[in-house]
Design a protein around this nucleic acid. Structure first.
Lengths: 380, 380
DNA sequence: ACCGGGCGGGACAGCGTTTCCCACCCCACC
DNA sequence: GGTGGGGTGGGAAACGCTGTCCCGCCCGGT
């Protein structure tokens, strides 16, 4: 019994394919009530589930949204993905999830695959390199996609295509560094910009710029991945440093990790190594993931409105998808469920007039959250 | 220029549709080299991207895998999702992500939607209620899906359909409780089984059973959601309890939260409320998410082999999807990227003969990890 | 009583691929 | 030199649905 088709329903109800189609979907022309009920009854009876692929083919609109993240296990991306999925699903669309692991060729593969699936829109979260050769391939892909009617939203960095939601990475990191300096921090370590990950570079850049303005130079600049494991390695490098060149100085060394998950990993590894935070090493992150506030010590970070950013992205993306609250294909409980997630979204602080989010690019600001991980006991 | 079709390629190459199709896909019949090259050249030139929906329709196989989780922002699910996505993507398939937020009607909607998308397989992660009326709807859906050739894998609890990967929740929690008792813990608090979430109930049940065997009764049993926020509320309830009935006793109260993210939330909130862990309250979780080891104090928990579980699920699911390393549609770099993620999987400890994972159900065991969050200073 | 308009329903042509089947050609073998 | 067989390319029918076009009917108006 290889699935029941619309034609089966039509036959069972004694109507034509066209009529069945009309009643089971949000067609402009709604057949008479009597016929409609008969069709619906048959559909219910046979357990009809529409073939979305065939529908997509016929309407040339798939109801699929491609979501590209670096690593879904990173709470930063997970938080965003959660919100995007909810919004998208509430609009009767679906999310196709891909991860790049920050590898450009994986990203290209992912985009190709998503485009092949005829996604109506692409949401690229996290930063993506530019200028490289492979990047050109991505641009070509995205441009072609947009030309064919697809929507593109970049979340975290401008793509040169579509619309964008970006935090002011450099400015926020600058502000963070300034706060730390004002607090009394004098020794700093940073994570080197990772090749091809502009936003991490921007963050570190902004941080270092503030240091420079204050006449401070980071005494350690080391490379590490923007992951929990990277945080572990970062901690190892710190210990090394404190055991060597940095040994003499008794003041705490303040480390800036350009991603919260990395900072949290560093926190754990520092502790495992018996290095006291914030006595000996202070740690600051970036992002404002949910776990940052529950960490011990609480993590100093830049809190980004991740959920709001995601909501904005979803909103843009869903402009193309109809069914925004429209009737579902079949049983009416479909819509009922959808209402559940309709949270009241705090609007983003964008560049355009308040309330209107039709800008091509909105900037969001992150707030400095001074946690215990950078507390200075001498000052307290 | 609304996307280039196969017919465009065929025309450009001066061959028929059939031939073009044959060369651009892993067809059994490969045309002559000369023709093939010509077609490939045209495809490249025109930037042909196959329409996966149309392919799916024609082949009646979509290359889509439906992934159902409760909450992608929960590291437990995120860790699993990460691995599943990677494996699936490496096999040229795609993941359709849905979240239920533990609401049964959302889950039904999600399943319907995934089935409508003609997913080749469904992976349901986390536990799902049974016996209820709505549950019957789910069973019907899944059975129908399986009858039509879809694969179903339950990760976390048996579904009565398809294959299953389950940790021994009750046994592991039992073991955990026993360890804690042996360690010297005497006062316990647990989270009430949540209606419709069997695995949480199993965990709490196993935990309480061990207590009972030792002649101990939990002095507090409270309800809270299996989320970070639920952990916060749990902490609040604990404080309340310790301020009231539980005030007199100076021994630490050991709380068992049946999910790590909840335990981590509790840790944070307890701290915010100035309640010392583990001096005054000890906390234990379940799951073994990456953050547990980086927490301060490190979290006592049951470490589940999440990645391996996910890999096993993916492996089962991908049996149906060909292309396991087979040539991709187009440029050959597709396969190159795929190799990247081919990690060596530690095989699961299953019930069947070692090495063969064709069992319908594999049990995985979780290991008790005694962290600092339950350390007893009196004993140390 | 006749005509026109409007509406409900059906037939049919796609949507972009795959795949079955057939025609054809070349070669080898009788 | 004729015929059978293997292999190569093309034609065309699905795949399940949508949307357009068209037809027939009913009703109201004149």
């Amino acid at each position: 019994m290889p699935a029941v088709r619309l034609s089966d329903v039509a036959q069972d109800a004694g109507v034509s394919l066209a009529t069945a189609s009309r009643v089971l979907n949000g067609s402009a022309r709604v057949p008479g009530k009597a016929v409609a009920d008969k069709v619906r009854a048959s559909a219910e009876k046979l357990g009809y589930v529409p073939n979305a692929q065939a529908q997509a083919l016929a309407r040339s609109r798939s109801g699929l949204i491609g979501l590209v993240v670096h690593d879904i296990a990173d709470p930063y991306f997970a938080t965003i993905a959660r919100e995007v999925q909810q919004q998208v699903f509430a609009s009767q669309a679906q999310v196709l999830l891909t991860q790049t692991d920050r590898a450009i060729d994986t990203e290209i593969r992912a985009l190709r695959a998503l485009i092949a699936q005829q996604v109506d829109a692409l949401v690229l979260v996290g930063s993506h390199r530019y200028g490289t050769e492979a990047d050109a391939a991505i641009s070509t892909l995205l441009q072609g996609f947009e030309r064919n009617g697809g929507k593109v939203v970049g979340l975290g960095q401008s793509l040169g295509v579509g619309r964008t939601i970006v935090p002011d990475n450099a400015a926020a990191a600058h502000e963070l560094a300034t706060s730390l300096i004002v607090d009394g921090h004098q020794r700093f370590a940073v994570v080197e910009g990772i090749a091809g990950i502009p936003s991490a570079g921007d963050r570190t850049g902004g941080f270092v710029a503030a240091l420079t303005e204050a006449g401070i130079e980071p005494e350690l600049s080391t490379a590490a991945e923007l992951t929990r494991a990277g945080g572990h390695r970062l901690a190892a490098r710190i210990e090394e440093h404190l055991g060597g060149e940095g040994a003499a100085d008794p003041r705490p060394l303040c480390v800036f990790a350009p991603a919260d998950v990395m900072a949290l990993g560093a926190l754990g590894e520092l502790r495992r190594r018996g290095i006291d935070v914030p006595e000996r090493v202070a740690v600051a992150g970036f992002g404002g993931v949910p776990g940052a506030a529950d960490a011990n010590p609480t993590l100093t970070t830049i809190a980004l409105p991740l959920a709001e950013m995601a909501r904005q992205a979803a909103e843009w993306v869903l402009e193309s998808v109809p069914g925004r609250g429209a009737g579902a294909a079949e049983s009416d409980d479909a819509t009922r469920g959808a209402a559940t997630t309709a949270a009241t979204a705090a609007p983003l602080d964008d560049d355009s007039a308040p309330g209107t989010n039709d800008a091509r690019e909105v900037h969001v600001r992150g707030d400095v959250v001074l946690g215990e991980s950078t507390a200075l006991t001498g000052v307290a």
